[in-house]
Design a protein around this nucleic acid. Sequence first.
RNA 1: GGGAGUUUAGCUCAGCUGGUUUAGAGCACCUGCCUUACAAGCAGGGGGUCGGAAGUUCGAAUCUCCCAACUCCCACCA
Length: 881
Amino acid sequence: MDLPAIYDPSLTEEKWYTYWMEHRFFHSVPDDRPKYSMVIPPPNVTGVLHMGHMLNNTIQDVLVRRARMMGKNTCWVPGTDHASIATEAKVVALLKEQGIEKSDLSREEFLEHAWAWKEKHGNIILEQLKKLGASCDWDRTKFTMDPDLSRSVIESFVYLYNEGLIYRGIRMVNWDPEGQTAVSDEEVIHKEVNEKLYYLKYFISQNGTRSTEYVTIATTRPETIMADVAVCVHPQDERYAHLVGQKVLIPLIDKEIPIIADDYVAMDFGTGCLKITPAHDANDYEIGLRHQLPVVDILNDDGTLNEEAKILVGVDRFEARRTIRTLLEEAGCFEKEEAYVTQVGFSERTDAVIEPRLSLQWFVKLSVLAQKALAYVDEGKVHLIPGKFTNTYRHWMETARDWCISRQLWWGQQIPAWTLPNGDIVVASDVQEALKQAREKDPLLQEKDLVQDPDVVDTWFSSWLWPISVFDPDKPGHPGKESNRELAYYYPTDDLVTAPDILFFWVARMIMAGDLFCGQKPFTNVYLTGMVRDKQGRKMSKSLGNSPDPIELMDKYGADGVRMGLMLCTSAGNDILFDESQVEQGRNFCNKIWNAFRLVQSWERDPDREQEDTAAAAVRWMSQLLAATKEEMEDLLSKYRLSEALMLLYKRFWDDFCSWYLEIIKPPAGVKSLDATTYDKTLAFFDVFMHLLHPFMPFITEELWQNLAERRPGESIMVSPVPETGTYVQSAITDFERLQELVAHIRGMRQSKQIPGKTLLDLLIKGSFPESLQGVAKRMAGLNTVSSVSQTPEEGQMYAFLIGTTEFYIPLGNLLDVEEERTKLLVEKEYFQKFLFSVEKKLNNASFVQRAPEHVVAMERKKQADALAKIKALEEQLALL
RNA sequence: GGGAGUUUAGCUCAGCUGGUUUAGAGCACCUGCCUUACAAGCAGGGGGUCGGAAGUUCGAAUCUCCCAACUCCCACCA
């Protein structure tokens, strides 16, 4: 077989993915084997693949493929998230381009557009994941708004409502007066703005009329004073203590409001005197609740002032701000204004200034759920990797506030609550059930009398069920129901790979849902990836244009190359600074593997040839090294140190297998065959390497594994267990390391003295050196003879060096520069003398010898002895010159 | 403002409960090589005193405290 010198991924990747799909290797059904299961963090249907997905899904695929090769019944469930806010925004924007306003459409019409959009674009990202090699069970692909998953959401809502865990309450939302909708906190962008801080006089009321005394209040929003319901000072503030309990008059409208005390107020800010406007400020609302103050809302949906304002009715809030300043001055209530820089929230979509606004929302009570979710992690039932996130997790769980789950959107699961004509609410899984309940209150009610809450639930209220509902959509909402076979087998899942920024939004809530509906954790290990940033550490974003297109990247470097590049520099929880050179390294490694294979497959197996000693030694070493490598890999992977495991393989394959092993066994020029033993072993080693590498680089390893031997149709490395590698003795490996050091030293000497490789040298060894490796040394260092001596050779013109405490000599004749040698040996001697000095300093320290553990002292004594021996040897060598 | 994390070679990072010669790896860099698997390669080489200061200890990159810089999360002082 004639293979090109450059590996071309485009010839293999698609071919093998198709092959894997055809043979259904990714598909899983429950059976008697131990299982390994994982659910994908469902990407948004609006999304296209970005570098974050690439990293995240590569990690998942590595874990999944490894589990599969270990014989587990492996199930990786893929799917997408309906992402209500993001998707709805996208669809609204798209319709706008076509000249259609959302407000012109009925809910049903809008949803039709949304579904059409989803059908068209929703699977892009999953298709892209296939190119990466993701071995998901595509037959199980789910969408969070699939009918059965939506039913899950509705039933769980009903259950939680009946359990008293869901309630309706008033809450401040971020109101976008331009879009006339509430937006989530995530959609509010805070910007620094130059504003003014206005100082206003609120006169103390004497039976409803102004007294001469007043308090000064600093505010950035004078247009909201008509909505004030109190003035608040700090309880310890002596300046105002005498006024607490009295009343002041709101300027311009002369409405009487009380002066109250609350330690929320900062005494050192502004005047230490705060106006309380519960309808238009979240903190004020909280204070209002504490003091049972009324709420006065003076704003319309579009940001103009309403009747409640009494003045400036119908005027826009910013216009009102300008106008009211003049009015206040005229009324003698304006003291001064100061320039002030403050953070203002803007709508991500319309860029309008967000108005905090009160509205009726649905909430999930979190206190008990959060406590339980914390226990899962604290008790070690769920492991966060890396562990440092446990602190963050705890902090969140301990301060969790109730979860607002209603969203003023259409795309999502509509809240299953119906309002009756009398204002009562019924919550039920469908309208028939709701009507049944309603009729218990009023038998005359008809379906048309019930009005369903128009809001939908938060996306996380569906994705928190994900690890359950993908297996058994009937379970959420019915915790008592027996799990179906799927859930019983696959749940709890094993690993979850996700980003730390959704630890609270998603991970914690899945743990809550798992406990609520299954009485069990949803997963055992949570591997938290870092964020992919660019070389300069900036977030990758479309606007910066610093995010490479993953598809182009894979076209250029191959999926294996990209996977390798990403995996090489990722450690759990740490951001990765992405640079194309990493991917280049991955591609180069693919090429290296490819060429190693080319070399191996160019050889023929010769059953008549005797195995040479050098080859035998190399085989012995490589089989031990592989056994050790496999063990080390298992250890690293069990600790989720994926990049270290890959780096280990990289070095073992490139440095040890290619640069040493293959070079040692390589037949001489002109010979194309290997003895049968070495040949078989070499193929076996290659086989082991392909297996160990496969989870990281699935395509090239499959390609080469398929060509390594005759394979039957339907065979694949992905379902083939890693071959046994036997046991190993560490000393055999360290012996070989000494050989490598020796060879490198001689090669270096050759280079510095410009002795060509063809010139064979003689080597004398004084001291210990494994005899079985002498042949290898000859071959790799270009030696004619290797002999042992018991005495330092007498003759001069010897090139001398030390490895450990073993002395080596090479007669160089007139090639040896005596002065240069002398300098080299003196430098070395000085080094060891300094070293000896530092060791002896320790040993002469009585308290060290007394207090340090015995083995540490013994170690120092050995260092001392070694250093003395080396110095002695160096002195002898010097004398020789 | 609160909380967490990071700071080790030019870059990216290991270094686990303090002691295995005077701190490791990959990439990059330098030198010499197109040696019949691979120049996406081969061989060799240089480079850091572990952010700063103090302390504990026989011994500190590793533990404690302080300081500095950066990152993230939460709350955002009218």
